[in-house]
């Protein structure tokens, strides 16, 4: 309880107005063949901010978030992450990627490694940490996501919710400045969604910069600092949760909300 209070106080102490911009997108566009997936997306995300991206399927949310650690390449515009511009120069990519944690819809854990190795592999070989230190960190991260007893199991032996929590721990092990979540609960059974959302809330309270693509409206209402609504590859509307859920300005946002609420 006291832990939570200190964490929420971190969150309340933030001064978002004066925080630095950590992700800057300017006029980002991307096409898959003839289909335009992103159309002139311009947005900034500040340090310690939690941004939830909403929108109907096919609206470009996932494509955008994947452009931010360059799993997809944008074709027009600029993306700056923590002061580094994403370009074709390969040397920047690995640096950016190790600063940006990513959690996938399908977890994508490494099935041939134990949970502990899943988490400690990248710190050992990318961050060049000594093995003992990396494994200790893995244990404490597993503690943090609430499954310390699963360290020696293989991913295939865990439930979906546990796998997703391991995936979060794996991303956190790189000590990233930003966490990207690409529909982290969409592949989960309903009873497992809460355990993952709880971990994400705890992460938000601890002051992590987060960008979350999700369909969990409750999470968006409760945790987000800013909600961005996308449709047709464009950001249609940006605003605080209160504004977004109670008093949206755009017709398309209203339509979307009327369909899901």
């Amino acid at each position: 309880m006291s832990e939570n209070e200190t964490k929420s106080s971190i969150r309340e102490d933030r001064d978002l107005a004066n925080a630095q911009d950590i992700i800057v997108c300017e006029g980002v566009s991307k096409w898959f063949g003839d289909f335009q997936a992103l159309n002139n997306v311009t947005a900034t995300i500040k340090e310690q901010e939690v941004v939830v991206v909403l929108g109907p399927s096919g609206s470009g949310k996932s494509t955008w978030i994947r452009c931010i650690n360059r799993l997809e390449q944008h074709q027009e515009g600029r993306i700056m992450v923590d002061g580094v511009e994403l370009s074709n120069d390969l040397r920047n990519i690995e640096k950016v990627r190790s600063e940006v944690g990513m959690v996938f819809q399908m977890f994508n854990l490494f099935p041939h490694l134990t949970v502990r190795d899943n988490i400690s592999l990248a710190p050992i070989w990318v961050r060049k940490k000594p093995r003992a230190e990396a494994e200790e960190q893995a244990s404490s991260l597993l503690e943090r996501v609430g499954i310390p007893e699963q360290a020696d199991k293989f991913p295939g032996q865990l439930s979906g919710g546990q796998q997703q929590r391991v995936a979060i721990a794996r991303a956190l092990a790189m000590e990233p400045k930003i966490m990207l979540f690409d529909e982290p609960t969409s592949a989960l059974d309903p009873e497992m969604i809460k355990e993952v959302l709880d971990v994400m809330k705890e992460l938000a309270l601890s002051g992590m910069t987060m960008m979350v693509v999700t369909h969990e409206m409750g999470f968006a209402k409760e945790v987000a600092d800013k909600i961005m609504f996308m449709e047709g590859g464009q950001i249609v509307e940006t605003g605080t949760p209160e504004h977004f859920f109670t008093n949206p300005t755009e017709e398309r946002t209203k339509l979307f909300l009327s369909q899901i609420l």
Binding site: L71, E94, F104, M106, L121, V126
Partner: peptide, 19 residues
């Protein structure tokens, strides 16, 4: 997804291949 997960934690191409 496995390739992406390895890339997302910043592994180089050869690390991704080998591990």
């Amino acid at each position: 997804g496995q390739h992406e997960a390895a890339e997302a934690v910043g592994m180089t191409n050869s690390q991704k291949t080998f591990f």
